[in-house]
Design a protein around this nucleic acid. Structure first.
Length: 669
DNA sequence: CGCGGAGACCTTTTT
DNA sequence: GGTCTCCGCG
C-alpha cells in the first residue's frame, strides 16, 4: 500500500541548481519554499502568479517529492500545459508523471478508471453544453407536465441544475432565492431532474457538471478510493482559486484532508465567474477553513506601467468586499491610459483600427495587441471594419470551433462507435440520411436498443451488422444511404484508436458530399474538418480524442492553429477569455452603461462588484498602452434604431487626472 | 413524416 | 448573423 509522505522514504533529493532567492522576490520566495502546510497566496494581477506556481513545483521536486505525488489544478487546460512546459524547461525535461489540468479533465481521467462504481462504463461520452441541453429537452418532453407551455425551457432548467450542483444548495433554496416565478413548478422540476440523471446514466454520458459532482460522489462513497487519491496527491496546487465553486472547494478539501499540503493561489479582485457558481468567499475564508494556513501576499506588479496600474487600483477601489491591497508598480513610467469617446460603433471601430496601425508603424506587432469587450456581439462592427481594411485578426467567437454542426456530425460517428449507448450521437448520424427525421430516428433507436441484451451487450459486438439488420425499418428513400452507413461503420470499427483516420474515412464515405449539397459555405466547413483530422492526429486513443474534444476550449485550439502560421494578428476576445493573459496594447471597447456593466447581469445580487472586477481584469491585461472607448450612440438590436449611450459607470468613477481624454466626436464638427 | 422556406427572435460571461 | 418555429407541400 502507498506510504504516507515522509521525505526520507522517497528518492534522494535531486539538485536543479535553481537560485530561488535570486529568481523570485521575497514574498514569492517565501511562498515557494514554505514547508508542507496549507497556504494561501494572494497574488495581485501581473504579480508573477504563474511564476510562483512554477517554481513551487520545481522546489517540491527538488525536495525529493516524486512528480506523480503532485496535482496541479488550473482554470484552463492551456494554463496547465503552459505551466508544465515551464517547469519542464526549468528542470530540463522528464516530467511526464506530473498531473495537471482543469478540474474537469482530471475528474474525467479519474472517473474513467472507476466508472463502474457509479453505474457507468469507462467509455462514457462527455456531452457539451448543447448536447446536454438537447438531452434535457427530451426529458422535459417525456415528463407529463401541467401547463407545459409555461414550464421553463431547457436552458433555464440547465442553468438551474448547474447552480444546484455547483453551489451545493438545495433546489428549493435556489428557487426561492433566485427563481421565485418557478416555484410552482418545483415538484415537476425535480421529476425532470431525476429523469435527466437516469437518462444520462442509461446512455452512458456525462455532462460537464457530472465530471465534478460524480468525482466528488466517487470519493465520498468509496473509502478505498478516497484513501488512494489522498495518498497519491500529497501536494495540491490550485490556480485561480477565486473562481472555484463549492463543488471544487469540496473536492480540494477532501483530497487535502489527510496531508493538508494544499497551496491555493488567486486574486479575489479577479473573481469573475460567480454566475457559474464560483464563490469567491472560498478564498476569503480559506484561513478559517485551514487553521494554521500561511498567507502570502504578492503585491508587486511586474506587468504594467505605473499609469495603467494607478488606473487599475482606482477602478477596483469602489469594491468593498475584498482583501485590501494596492499593487505597486516596478516598471518605469509610460503613457497615460486614454479614454476615447466616439460618435458611434462605427467610429469606435475606425479608431481602434487606425490606432492599431499607428502602433504597428511604431514597431509593435499586431500579435501584441488585443481588443477586449464584455460580450461577443460587441465586436461585430469592429470585425467588419478590420475585414474592410484587411487587418488580420483572430476572434474567439461565441460559436466554438468544436461545437459547429459539421464538426459534431463527424464526431457523432466516432462517439457512437465508441459508446453504443450514446443515443444522441446515433440519432444525429441517422438524421443525416435522407428521409429520416426525429420520429424515424426514435423508432430506429428503439430497434437498435432491442438488440442490446444482457447476453449480447451492444458495446461488445460489432455494430455494423446490427445496423444492417435494422435496414428494413428505415424508409425506402434511405435504403442506399443506410447500406452505406453500415459499411462505413464496419470500416470505422477496424480503425479503433486511430481517430484521425476515422475522421478522414467519414469524410470520404459521403460526408463531404453531404456538405457540398447542404451548405453554401461548404469549403470553409471542409477546411474545419481537415483541421479536426489534424487535431486528432495527436491522440493515440479514441478515448483521449473524444475527451479532449469535449474539454478543449476554442481559444486553446485556435492558439495552436495560429501558432503554426507566421502572419501577425490582432486578437479580439471577451474579457472572460482573456483571463490570465497579457498584452502590450489593450483596447477595451463598448464601455457604455447597459453593455458594461451588462443589463443582463443586473438582476443578480452583487452584480456591480462582479462587473467591476471584470473591468479590473480587463485593464490589468495591459502592459504598456491602454485605450478605453465608448460610442455615444449605438444601433439597437432588431428595430434598427439608434440609442443614446451613457459612458459606463466604471469610467465615471475614474479620477480625471489618471487618464487622457480624447473626444473624437467634436472633431467631426 | 420529412423537408424546405419564411419569418420571428435573440445575442453575458464558459469548463 | 444564427437558431428556432411554424407552415404547407410532397
Amino acid at each position: 500500500m502507498a506510504q504516507d509522505y515522509v521525505i526520507q522514504n522517497l528518492r534522494p533529493p535531486v539538485e536543479f541548481h535553481i537560485d530561488y532567492a535570486k529568481e523570485l522576490n521575497q514574498q514569492q520566495h517565501a511562498a515557494v519554499t514554505a514547508l508542507p502546510a496549507p497556504s494561501l497566496v494572494i497574488a495581485g494581477a501581473g504579480s508573477g502568479k504563474t511564476r510562483t506556481l512554477t517554481y513551487r513545483v520545481a522546489y517540491l521536486l527538488e525536495q525529493g517529492i516524486p512528480a506523480d505525488r503532485i496535482l496541479l489544478l488550473t482554470f484552463t487546460n492551456k494554463a496547465a500545459r503552459e505551466m508544465m512546459r515551464r517547469v519542464s524547461d526549468l528542470l530540463e525535461g522528464g516530467l511526464s508523471l506530473l498531473w495537471g489540468g482543469t478540474f474537469h479533465s482530471v475528474g474525467s481521467r479519474i472517473l474513467r478508471r472507476h466508472a463502474d462504481r457509479l453505474g457507468y462504463r469507462p467509455d462514457f461520452t462527455i456531452l457539451d453544453r448543447e448536447d446536454a441541453r438537447a438531452l434535457l429537452k427530451t426529458c422535459i418532453e417525456e415528463t407529463k407536465i401541467e401547463h407545459a407551455s409555461r414550464f421553463p425551457k431547457a436552458d433555464v432548467l440547465a442553468n438551474l441544475f448547474s447552480l444546484e450542483i455547483n453551489t451545493g444548495d438545495p433546489l428549493s433554496k435556489i428557487l426561492s432565492e433566485q427563481y421565485e416565478y418557478l416555484e410552482p413548478f418545483g415538484e415537476e422540476i425535480s421529476t425532470v431532474a431525476r429523469a435527466f440523471t437516469t437518462r444520462k446514466q442509461k446512455t452512458n454520458v456525462m455532462d460537464f457538471d457530472d465530471l465534478l459532482s460524480l468525482w466528488l460522489k466517487l470519493l465520498r462513497e468509496n473509502e478505498d478510493l478516497l484513501e488512494l487519491y489522498q495518498r497519491r496527491f500529497q501536494f495540491l496546487l490550485v490556480d485561480e482559486y477565486q473562481d472555484t465553486n463549492r463543488l471544487q472547494s469540496d473536492l480540494i478539501d477532501l483530497l487535502a484532508k489527510r496531508h493538508g499540503n494544499v497551496m491555493v493561489v488567486g486574486d479575489d479582485s479577479q473573481s469573475i465567474y460567480s454566475w457559474r457558481g464560483a464563490n469567491f468567499k472560498n478564498i476569503l475564508q480559506f484561513p478559517e477553513r485551514y487553521p494554521g494556513a500561511q498567507v502570502y501576499r504578492i503585491e508587486t506588479n511586474y506587468r504594467s506601467t505605473p499609469e495603467i496600474l494607478n488606473l487599475a487600483n482606482a477602478a477596483i477601489a469602489s469594491n468593498t468586499c475584498q482583501y485590501a491591497k494596492v499593487l505597486k508598480a516596478v516598471r518605469p513610467s509610460g503613457e497615460r491610459p486614454v479614454v476615447a469617446s466616439c460618435e458611434d460603433g462605427r467610429q469606435q471601430a475606425e479608431f481602434v483600427a487606425q490606432r492599431a496601425l499607428q502602433l504597428r508603424e511604431s514597431g509593435i506587432s499586431l500579435n501584441d495587441m488585443a481588443v477586449l469587450y464584455r460580450s461577443h456581439f460587441h465586436a461585430l462592427e469592429l470585425q467588419m471594419e478590420l475585414t474592410r481594411r484587411q487587418i488580420p485578426f483572430t476572434i474567439t467567437s461565441g460559436l466554438r470551433f468544436f461545437e459547429q454542426a459539421h464538426i459534431k456530425d463527424v464526431s457523432a460517428y466516432i462517439k457512437w462507435i465508441h459508446n453504443p449507448a450514446d443515443e444522441l450521437s446515433f440519432k444525429r448520424i441517422i438524421q443525416l440520411l435522407p428521409g429520416i427525421g426525429g420520429k424515424g430516428a426514435g423508432k430506429l433507436w428503439s430497434a437498435i436498443q432491442a438488440k442490446d441484451t444482457p447476453e449480447a451487450p451492444l458495446n461488445s459486438q460489432p455494430l455494423a451488422p446490427v445496423v444492417q439488420g435494422c435496414a428494413r425499418l428505415a424508409p425506402k428513400k434511405a435504403q442506399a444511404a443506410w447500406a452505406q452507413l453500415s459499411a462505413t461503420l464496419s470500416q470505422l470499427e477496424d480503425l479503433k484508436d486511430q481517430p484521425s483516420a476515422m475522421v478522414d474515412l467519414i469524410l470520404e464515405a459521403g460526408y463531404t458530399e453531404y456538405l457540398q449539397d447542404t451548405f453554401p459555405n461548404f469549403r470553409s466547413r471542409q477546411e474545419d474538418l481537415a483541421q479536426l483530422s489534424t487535431f486528432a492526429l495527436q491522440f493515440k486513443t479514441t478515448d483521449d480524442f473524444l475527451t479532449q474534444l469535449a474539454l478543449v476550449t476554442n481559444t486553446e485550439s485556435e492558439d495552436e492553429a495560429a501558432a503554426e502560421e507566421p502572419e501577425e494578428r490582432i486578437r479580439l476576445s471577451t474579457i472572460h477569455q482573456a483571463k490570465g493573459l497579457e498584452f502590450p496594447v489593450v483596447f477595451l471597447i463598448m464601455l457604455c452603461e447597459g453593455l458594461f456593466p451588462s443589463t443582463r447581469s443586473m438582476d443578480r445580487i452583487d452584480f456591480e462588484e462582479e462587473e467591476r472586477r471584470l473591468f479590473y481584469v480587463a485593464v490589468t491585461r495591459a502592459m504598456d498602452h491602454l485605450y478605453l472607448s465608448y460610442p455615444a450612440v449605438r444601433m439597437t438590436a432588431g428595430n434598427s434604431g439608434e440609442m443614446f449611450q451613457r459612458r459606463s459607470r466604471f469610467l465615471a468613477e475614474l479620477p480625471e487626472e489618471l487618464v487622457d481624454t480624447w473626444n473624437l466626436r467634436s472633431s467631426l464638427f
